[in-house]
C-alpha cells in the first residue's frame, strides 16, 4: 500500500472546511459566549478571543478546538480577589447562563460548555479559559495572563495559583509555523492530532503536540515523503520525550515547560506509543490505517479534478535529460 497516499487522504478527509455547517455552529456559539462574557463583566474584561487549533490553522474536523481566552483585569474580582475566585465566578456565571442548553464542566484550566446535541445531531463545545492580567491595566501592553489550575495537570498541582503565559504569543508562534510550513509542520501536527483522536482521554494536549512537532523539525533535518517526515517526528518523540532534560518551552512564557503537563509515566507511555506505531507499521504498512484513520464521512473516490503530487511535497528536480520533438 502507498503510505503517503493514505496519509494525504487522512489530511484531506479531516480538513475543517469539509464540516462547514458544524464550523459555523461553533462560530455562532463562540460569538454568543463572547458577547455574554462582555455583557456580564463589562469594563472588568478585555475582549475575549479564540485560541484553539482553529485560530492556529492546525484544526481537524473530528475535534473542533474552540478555546476562548477571557482576559480579566487584575481587580475584576476585588483587590484581594484570587485566581480561584475568578475561575469560580466565571464558572458560576456560565453555569447559570447555559445550564438549560449545555453541560458546563470545570476542566484543568478551562470551563467547558458542551451544548446538547441539536436536531441535526451536532454537538458544539466551547472551552472558556479565564485569565487575569498580572498588573492592573497592563494586559494591553504585555498580553500576559495568569491562569488558574483547577485540577492536577501533569506536574502542576490542583489549586496552583498560576500558570503565567502570553496566549497571543502562543497562537502566533504556532500559526506562523503551521502556515508557512504547510507541507511539513502543519501536516504532521494534523496527523498526530488524528492519532490522538483515536485514543480516549489521552493526556497529551494538542498544544504539546504542536510544540513537539515544531521542536522535532527545528532539531533535525526532516525531509522526504510525508511518511518519512511523520516517522522522523515520531522517532524524535520516542527518543526524546522521556529524557530528564527534555523541555518544551511555552512560546508565551519561556519559564513554562509544557512537558510538565505530563507526569513521568505519561511521558513514558507517550514514548512507548510512538515506538509501537513505528514498529507495527514497519511490520505491515496496512497498520497505518489503524493509527491514522481517514475520516470515513469524507472519503471520496479518486477523481481527476485536482492537480496531484506524489505525497512528498512539491519540490522537484526535473529528469536529467529529456528529448522533445
Amino acid at each position: 500500500m502507498d503510505k503517503n497516499k493514505h496519509l494525504e487522504s487522512v489530511i484531506k478527509t479531516h480538513q475543517i472546511a469539509k464540516e462547514e455547517q458544524l464550523l459555523n455552529k461553533h462560530r455562532d456559539k463562540s460569538k454568543d459566549v463572547k458577547e455574554s462574557l462582555e455583557k456580564e463583566y463589562g469594563s472588568n474584561i478585555y475582549s475575549p478571543f479564540n485560541s484553539g487549533s482553529y485560530a492556529k490553522n492546525t484544526a481537524i474536523n473530528t475535534k473542533f478546538d474552540f478555546d476562548m481566552i477571557a482576559p480579566f483585569k487584575k481587580n475584576a474580582f476585588g483587590s484581594n480577589g484570587t485566581l480561584k475566585d475568578m475561575y469560580n465566578n466565571v464558572y458560576d456565571f456560565l453555569y447559570e447562563k447555559y445550564k438549560d442548553e449545555a453541560n458546563v464542566i470545570k476542566q484543568k484550566v478551562s470551563i467547558g460548555i458542551e451544548f446538547f446535541r441539536d436536531e441535526e445531531g451536532d454537538i458544539v463545545k466551547i472551552d472558556v479559559v479565564p485569565g487575569r492580567e498580572l498588573n492592573q491595566d497592563k494586559y494591553p501592553d504585555d498580553e500576559n495572563l495568569n491562569l488558574y489550575v483547577y485540577y492536577k495537570y501533569g506536574n502542576y498541582d490542583a489549586g496552583s495559583e498560576r500558570i503565567k503565559t502570553n496566549v497571543k504569543a502562543q497562537i502566533n508562534n504556532i500559526k506562523d509555523r503551521a502556515t508557512n510550513e504547510k507541507d511539513s509542520i502543519r501536516k504532521i501536527i494534523r496527523l498526530l492530532k488524528v492519532w490522538k483522536g483515536t485514543k480516549l482521554n489521552y493526556p497529551t494536549k494538542s498544544f504539546l503536540l504542536e510544540l513537539i512537532t515544531i521542536k522535532a523539525f527545528d532539531n533535525n533535518d526532516i525531509t522526504g515523503s510525508l511518511w518519512d517526515k511523520l516517522e522522523a517526528v515520531m522517532e524524535y518523540i520516542r527518543d526524546e520525550v522521556t529524557k530528564e532534560n527534555f523541555t518544551l518551552k511555552d512560546p508565551g512564557n519561556s519559564s513554562n515547560d509544557l512537558i510538565d503537563t505530563l507526569t513521568t509515566s505519561e511521558r513514558q507511555n507517550f514514548s512507548n506509543d510512538m515506538d509501537n506505531i513505528i514498529n507495527r507499521i514497519e511490520d505491515n504498512d496496512e497498520n497505518i490505517k489503524t493509527y491514522f484513520p481517514e475520516n470515513e464521512k469524507f472519503i471520496e473516490e479518486d477523481n481527476d479534478d485536482t492537480y496531484g503530487d506524489k505525497g512528498a511535497g512539491l519540490f522537484s528536480i526535473p529528469p536529467k535529460n529529456e528529448r522533445f520533438g
Binding site: Y307, G308, D309, K310, P318, P319, F324
Partner: peptide, 21 residues
C-alpha cells in the same frame, strides 16, 4: 509529437519529480 508525449510520460514517472500532472 510522439517524442513529446513520451517525454511528458517519462517526466511524470521520474522518481525525482514530485508532481503527477
Amino acid at each position: 509529437s510522439i517524442t513529446d508525449i513520451k517525454a511528458i510520460n517519462s517526466i511524470r514517472n521520474d522518481k525525482d519529480v514530485a508532481i503527477l500532472n
